[in-house]
Design a protein around this nucleic acid. Sequence first.
DNA 1: GCTATCAGGCTACCT
DNA 2: ACAGGTAGCCTGATAGCG
Length: 772
Amino acid sequence: MKIPLSVEAVENKHKEYLSIWANEKNTMLPSPILPYFYSKDKLNISAKESRVEGIRLSNYQKANFYKYEFQTRKQLVSTRDDLERRFGKGKVFEANIPFVLRNRIDNPDIYTEYPNTNQLKFNYLDIEQYCPPERLFPISEDRITSISFAGNNRKIRTLYLKKDSLGDKKLLEAYSKVYTKPDIEVLYNKSYDIPMILQRCKLNGIETSWMSKDGSRPYVGGKSGVHLEGEMVYDILDSTRGDQSLTGNVPTKGLKVVSNYFGFKSKAKVLVGSEIAAAVGSPELVAYNKEDVERLFHLFDIYWAGIAYTAEDLRIPLNMAVDLNVTDLGLIVLGDLFREHNIIADGDNSSRFPEIFLRKKKPGEPNYQGAVVYIEQRGLFKPVLKADYSSMYPSIVAAFSLSPDTTTLLRYDRYQKNGFRIEEDKDTFTYFIPDNALRKNVVLQVVKKPGFLSETVDRFLKERAKYKAEYKKTGSKIARARSDIAKVKANGGIYGVMGAAHHPFGFAPIAVATTGIGRECAKLLINVLDTLYPKSVIEVDTDGVYFTAEEYNKERIIHYFNDALKKKFKKDLNLTIDIDDYPAGYFHKAKNYILLTKEGNVILHGAAMKASSKDGISKKLIQDLARAKLEGKSTDSIVLRYKNLQDFQLSDFAMQVTLGRRIHEYKSINCIPVNIAMQAQKAFNIKPQVGNVHHYVKTIYGYQLFQLAKKDDLDLKYYSKKIDKIVKMFELEYELTAPIGSFIGKESESWEQEEDTKIVEKKAPMRLDDFL
DNA sequence: GCTATCAGGCTACCT
DNA sequence: ACAGGTAGCCTGATAGCG
């Protein structure tokens, strides 16, 4: 690798160091830079002061700044927070950039100087644990019954308990003796295996320092869930959770389901539930445990290449690449560009564009208008076509030369619902973008020259196209990984960050322009389809239009589309569309529909169809009804089968909920996630942690944690209502409705509010045609 | 005490 | 703390009814 295994910022004796692990050795590098922030005003604080010249992100003009440097991050943070308390936010700039990243941005090759050139040492790990019959899942009081692990040669070893042995002390000691101290622990769900091993060691009075490279004691906590000095954890669940190609194709993201989806062929007996406890000491449990490690190999080979590539591409250590979020990605990609152009981010979006971000807003109201989303027709359609733009937002940024050095927000004009227009003079384009969230026409000027951001996005898109073509041709996983990272960089790393309220490198005018032009692009595609195939449009979401037409001609659509594009935007744009077809589709609401693929698979879309929170009966019923509907079969017998709830087991009634935030952050303490998390804490001492998933059922006493509920107490009325609702969901037949989506609704409403001079008679709902 | 309606909160999903 | 957007289900407040 060209990059190190891991880097962390460490404070020692009031100085900042970078603790770098590479080739199994640690380097404590005194940080080449000090933690710092900028200010426009001279500040009376204790920090090293200097003057620097830079270009203000807010107006792209040269300006002088004060730079304040601190000995430690802690000093910076306390000074920053103190200034914010006294003067409010927006006093200091670039004051919240993680220090390891700050180092990478200011000195892009800092980490490539510590490459891990040796072959990385992996340990693939999976454990099994005893669980008494009265519980659904083991807790730390239960013994570990089997540990399977493998190194780079992928020969799996298993240490396991005999059937009648009740303690796992010897097992853990045996494992500690053969433990290899790898560079990277590969496992599935980092919050389980290693924390459980550590807890079991603790309860058995076993020292845990054998797990780390420098003899320090591992601890649970932090971003990676568990800290092992000199090692990093790669949790494949993080990769599968982020893999969009899985949504809709797998019911859950568990190891078995996902590896099966990717073609893993199981040879062992897959144990479920209480079978795992019953099989202690048996060859079945060993085989089962071993096979999970084989599943780890299978998924590792799918995802690891992408992470390794990301790390090298961005010149960051592997431990940063495994849990890279879009914020940090934006810091790196934009940070590199800002450094090259000597730009200082003078505040974040909310302080630089208060008209957008600090308006009076109801909770949940957006900062600016987003995409076109609505459903035009509901029911069953044969066939179903989908025309969609490839990488619409990044393509717009590239094609319209949107970049901080080319784009200026001139002013906000009075809102006009159809007010999108373009003015052109010798050197500039001016875009008038109606925004129904701002209730203003946003007037943006774009200079006719290549911008640094748009050029970079263009490069990402070309990169992506190249790797995508290579991947499609050769099936190369590396090519797929490269294609994916190029896409993420172009999409989230640029567009998402541009619109983020508090990201230091955001630039709202680009976000407003991107979605505004995106809406015009969507409408243009809708118009083309409606002209060629009148009344064909079914559903629209952002950059894709579902439509239906018996006879259709792809070439014709693309030809008309290109013509319309040229006419509308008065120049050649590199915007392309793809067209996919499906034999049938059933559309329920916006973003909620089902499709039949040519291969005969049923794909569910949207929360109404496939929310993971649904109970098993509902899920099965939807699956069955969906297939029947799309294949044109009668649904009567299916409905009858589900009417008799007595035929189902308690577990079929269980619903799922995730704790989305920390308990004290909830405004409503009576909501289900909190209620269930508290029950789990009370009954099983499970600490409420963000991301915890619990199963629960509705009983006549209210919502109950699944493990505490009895079948006789189930609120069957509640479940029959749910079933009736699902059956109704599939009863629409070619029902033509007025546009339902809020896109149209909101537009007309805000228009009426704007015209407050006269009372307008209540009009019929607007049709899409009126709007276009 | 029951039902209906509405707003706000929350999760899950889509692009 | 990447964005906006749709949907479904929940709770609590309120009003109307007998």
